[in-house]
């Protein structure tokens, strides 16, 4: 461990991994919510064309990748907003065109050496320069700041776009901002896990978090924790095991997902064993149902023929006193 941290390139690599682990799930949760989990892949494909232009013109590939990715993300939102069925094909053309142009330009500029190309496609975290790290850190701060400020609006738009529009939220503008954040995240993650695997770190920690929480706010926190665990842990493991960092990060994220899924089903099974359902219950308790309401911890029980009934996940539990699994202990004040 101390040996690893004594190496300059490893310190840089771990800090870059920390940035990615933090921001990728923060942005990714809205992609999962919109059921557009794979859109990060598409932006990654287009970013490769930007990288290629940087390599060919001997400029920093990060900046040109950023420009290409941002343009792609804005275009995606404009195509989506038009809502035509041909939009899907338009996006496919753009994504494949991006990666194909990237491959052609890089090989042409690089004398057909595949090293540079694989570095961008699958990540080459240990070649991250200090200047790049500073840029990634600054971009990560911006991404995190914007998400924290606008997450409630992103949640509303991603959850129910039509309602958001009817209620007066600027839907297209919010979607474009989210698209740009996705593009910037792709570029920040490019060095660490590579353009082909980027979506994994936006999506998998969120998939894992969904196994453990029924609240959006809590799931977001879990996802960031899992993202940091997978990216920092994966980079460390890849150093110890001498494996490719990007792939290791993603495999670790999948392992975290499997563990979370197991923990989630275990918790649900325990919750089922520890509480008793009320008999088949057609009546619905409420403020004016006529049954006396009794405060019980963080909820209300209703007295029904000598039983205490508490609402729980679509049915009523018998509440004698102690044994009840709280539905969701998190604060709901997002």
């Amino acid at each position: 461990m101390s040996e690893m941290l004594s190496l300059e390139f490893m310190r840089t690599a771990l800090l870059a991994a920390l940035c990615v682990g933090l921001v990728a799930p923060m942005v990714g949760i809205f992609l999962v919510q919109r059921r557009l989990s794979l859109v990060g892949d598409g932006i990654g494909h287009v970013a490769l064309a930007g990288v290629a232009v940087g390599v060919a013109t001997q400029n920093s590939p990060v900046w040109s990748a950023l420009v290409a990715a941002v343009l792609a993300s804005v275009l995606i939102e404009l195509v989506r907003a038009r809502g035509r069925t041909s939009g899907d094909l338009a996006l496919a053309l753009m994504f494949y065109g991006g990666i194909a142009a990237g491959v052609v330009i890089i090989n042409r500029a690089d004398g057909a050496q595949t090293g540079t190309l694989t570095g961008f496609l699958f990540g080459s975290i240990t070649t991250t320069s200090r200047e790049e790290l500073a840029l990634f850190a600054a971009l990560s701060v911006v991404i995190a700041g914007v998400v924290l400020l606008l997450r409630q609006r992103f949640f509303a738009v991603a959850g129910d776009e039509e309602y958001a529009r009817a209620s007066g939220l600027p839907v297209l503008a919010l979607n474009i901002v989210l698209g740009v954040l996705t593009a910037v995240t792709v570029v920040v993650a490019m060095r660490v896990i590579g353009l082909l695997l980027i979506s994994a770190l936006m999506v998998i920690p969120n998939a894992a978090a969904q196994q453990l929480s029924g609240s959006f706010r809590a799931a977001g926190r879990w996802a960031v924790g899992f993202g940091v665990l997978a990216s920092v842990g994966g980079v460390m493991a890849s150093y110890q095991l001498d494996t490719a960092a990007g792939g290791t990060v993603v495999l670790l994220a999948i392992a975290v997902f499997v563990a979370a899924a197991l923990a989630g089903s275990l918790r649900r099974a325990l919750a089922r064993r520890r509480h008793r359902h009320a008999e088949r219950h057609l009546h619905e308790h409420g403020p004016d149902c006529g049954h006396a309401a009794v405060p019980h911890g963080d909820h209300v029980d209703y007295l029904h023929d000598g039983h205490r009934h508490a609402a729980h996940e679509g049915h009523y539990d018998e509440h004698a006193d102690e044994a009840h699994v709280q539905p969701e202990p998190e604060e709901a004040n997002r």
Binding site: L149, Q152, A164, S167, S215, F216, A219, A332
Partner: peptide, 30 residues
């Protein structure tokens, strides 16, 4: 479906009804 591809609490869904009455730089608080 109320929330798209993720889970959310009843309160989180209801709170979205208040968003457009606030300026964008002020997230909903307690």
């Amino acid at each position: 479906t109320l929330t798209g591809g993720v889970r959310a609490t009843v309160l989180e869904v209801v709170l979205t009804g208040l968003l457009s009455s606030r300026p964008w730089w002020r997230p909903l608080g307690r």
